[in-house]
C-alpha cells in the first residue's frame, strides 16, 4: 500500500508542474490566482498522503483542514481585490493607481 501512496504523491507533484507553468506565464493575474488555488487544494491532499505514509494521519489532518480553509480565504480576498481595483492585464489604471478605491 505504501508503494501506491508514494506513487500517487509523486504523480500529484508531477501534475502540479504544468500548473506551476501557468503561475509563471499566465497572461492575466487571475489565471495565476486560479492556479495557486488549485495547487493549494492539492497541497491539502498531499498532506493527507504524507500523513498516511508516516502512519500519523491524526496529526496531519489538522494541517490539511487549516490549509483548505485558509486557501478559500486567500482566493476570496484576491477575487475581491481584483474585482475592484485592478484591470486584468496588469496595466496601471488610468486614474493614478488604486489610491482612491
Amino acid at each position: 500500500m505504501d508503494f501506491i501512496l508514494i506513487c500517487s504523491g509523486i504523480a500529484l507533484f508531477l501534475m502540479m508542474l504544468p500548473i506551476m507553468y501557468r503561475i509563471v506565464v499566465g497572461p492575466t493575474a487571475i489565471d495565476r490566482i486560479v492556479a495557486v488555488n488549485v495547487i493549494g487544494t492539492k497541497t491539502a491532499v498531499l498532506l493527507i498522503i504524507i500523513g498516511a505514509l508516516f502512519h500519523n494521519v491524526a496529526m496531519f489532518v489538522d494541517f490539511a483542514i487549516a490549509y483548505a480553509a485558509l486557501n478559500f480565504l486567500g482566493s476570496l480576498a484576491a477575487a475581491r481585490y481584483f474585482n475592484r481595483t485592478r484591470p486584468a492585464y496588469g496595466q496601471v489604471s488610468q486614474e493614478g493607481g488604486d489610491a482612491d478605491e
Binding site: T41, A78, F82, A88
Partner: peptide, 22 residues
C-alpha cells in the same frame, strides 16, 4: 469543505475576470 469552497472561489474569480474585461 473543498466541495463547498472550490466552486465558490472559481465562480468569484471568474466574475472578477469578467468584470475586468478579459
Amino acid at each position: 469543505l473543498i466541495m463547498l469552497t472550490s466552486p465558490t472561489s472559481t465562480h468569484l474569480l471568474m466574475k472578477a475576470g469578467y468584470d475586468d474585461g478579459i
